[in-house]
Nucleic acid binder design. Structure first.
Length: 463
DNA sequence: TGAAATGTTGGGGCG
DNA sequence: ACGCCCCAACATTTC
């Protein structure tokens, strides 16, 4: 019988496999498993969709831990020291997070626990390469993706192999019954039930999703990933965000033996998308104001339009541009949006409506299951052109052209904009041009593409 | 991980 | 047969 007790603090790593902190705790002896909902007073408290996902993920984790997950709400900085006293904890383990407010909190907590004589160790459970280990020769951070990824990441040591689940879980059953339910993560109005039908929110669900992608999506990833109606993307983002699966598991499990050259290319592309995730976290780590401030400060003087009515139409998927509306409705209905469509709707908000990218980022933050501070901030800045290695300001997507190119048969649009499901592919991308669609109850385009594009180009050029 | 404007080329119709 | 024009089709430049 072991009396050595460790506290394992779960955060964005809601899994038992490849969990270095849990592994460390289990090797020491008994473990008190804790989750703390502690983002409520930060400026980036979770959005509604994220909370729903979290609720399910915690339920699943609790099941894996045989009902012994202690779920608390409040300030981790005071709750953890209390638990340490109460349960005579000798070691505290967690896997690192990279949001600025979490780094700040964790740093303080770590030193205060150590001052009390408690062993504290944090691990890497969420990134393939630690942001502070990847630097240019002059010791400053990369600002361009390709050299960051090729020279900084791929040329460095390969990501570690995933760890197995702990051989034995010797868990402490918490004194009081503080269950997932008491975190009140689910909204009062049940809008989320239909969204949940699209997802198996569990550690096993994550690994099944990966398997499924490797079997059916990877072989045509490079080309297929641009077509929202095709099932060629991994849809792993929400699992990765909450750590139901780790990037190490994804990285290594996708590297199968004896791949053909063709498949190898697909894999390289897929892994480079994990590389973009790394890059986002890297930027957030080195430039903590990424979520609030333009990475390129010359954009600070940009004359964003304040237009709540237009913003609302965009949010509601009532812009009159089918591909935009399909994307925004996919988001609302499923808590997810295909990446290609994310770029199109973001370009439309920023460049055709000239609305501040932060408004778009905020909406995504509230509605995406995979809402992730690093990815969301970096990606919105990328589209706006104010980010690191960003799209040039003159790269403005034409929603009709994009629609014709990437949803040629209109399969995606038909699914999410049922008003147009009866239209032929000829009229469906731009229904206002056809008399055939006049009777359909679908909005007219909210802006003129040509003139709004021209206005945006002039405004951006003035920077 | 664009799109539009502008430039170039080459085949076919026609005098 | 030839030159001329028209205009896709493709390439290059510009935003």
């Amino acid at each position: 019988m072991s009396y050595y007790t460790s506290l394992v603090w779960f955060r964005q790593d809601l899994r038992t496999e490849d969990n270095p902190a849990l592994q460390a705790g289990c090797q020491k002896g008994r473990v008190l498993a804790v989750y703390i909902l502690d983002d409520e007073e930060t400026s980036w408290s979770m959005g509604g969709a994220s909370k729903v996902w979290l609720h399910r993920a915690l339920q699943d984790l609790d099941k894996s831990l045989h009902g012994n997950l202690l779920c608390l709400q409040g300030k981790a900085a005071s709750l953890i020291p209390e638990l340490v006293r109460q349960y005579k904890i000798k070691s505290v383990f967690w896997n690192r997070c990279y949001e600025p407010w979490r780094i700040h909190r964790d740093t303080q907590l770590k030193s205060s626990l150590r001052n009390q004589g408690v062993e504290v160790e944090s691990f890497n459970g969420s990134l393939l390469w630690e942001p502070w280990e990847v630097l240019k020769k002059d010791q400053t951070p990369y600002r361009v993706f390709t050299p960051f990824y090729r020279k900084g990441c791929l040329a460095a040591a390969a990501p570690r192999m995933p760890l197995p689940a702990p051989e034995s879980l010797n868990l402490i059953t918490p004194d009081k019954q503080e269950s997932v339910e008491q975190l009140n993560l689910l909204p009062k109005i049940n809008w989320y039930q239909p969204m949940l039908q699209h997802w198996d929110i569990s550690e096993q669900g994550a690994s099944r999703q990966l398997e499924h992608f490797l079997e059916s999506g990877l072989q045509n990833y490079k080309a297929g990933r641009d077509f929202p109606a095709m099932k060629s993307v991994s849809r792993l983002s929400p699992y990765l965000h909450f750590g139901l699966i780790s990037p190490h598991q994804v990285w290594h499990q996708s590297q199968m033996n004896g791949m053909s050259d063709q498949l190898e290319k697909q894999l390289d592309h897929f892994q480079s998308e994990l590389g973009w995730r790394e890059f986002s976290y890297y930027l957030l780590y080195h430039f903590p104001t990424l979520p609030e401030k333009n990475f390129q400060s010359k954009f600070d003087s940009f004359p964003w339009r304040k237009d709540d009515e237009a913003l609302q139409k965009w949010k509601n998927g009532q812009t009159g541009y089918p591909i935009i509306d399909a994307g925004m409705r996919e988001l609302w209905q499923t808590g997810y949006m295909h990446n290609r469509v994310r770029m199109i709707v973001a370009s439309f908000l920023i460049k055709n409506l000239m609305i501040d990218w932060r408004e778009g980022a905020q909406w995504f933050w509230d509605t995406l299951f995979d809402a992730d501070l690093a990815n969301n901030s970096a990606s919105w800045q990328w589209v706006a052109g104010c980010g690191a290695d960003a799209a040039p300001y003159f790269r403005i997507f034409n929603p009709v052209t994009q629609s014709k190119k990437f949803d040629p048969d209109g399969e995606y649009i038909r699914h999410f904009v049922p008003e147009l499901s009866g239209c032929s592919a000829r009229v469906l991308h731009a229904p206002w041009e056809s008399s055939e669609a006049n009777l359909i109850d679908y909005p007219q385009p909210m802006v003129d593409l040509k003139s709004s594009r021209k206005d945006a180009l002039e405004a951006f050029r003035d920077l």
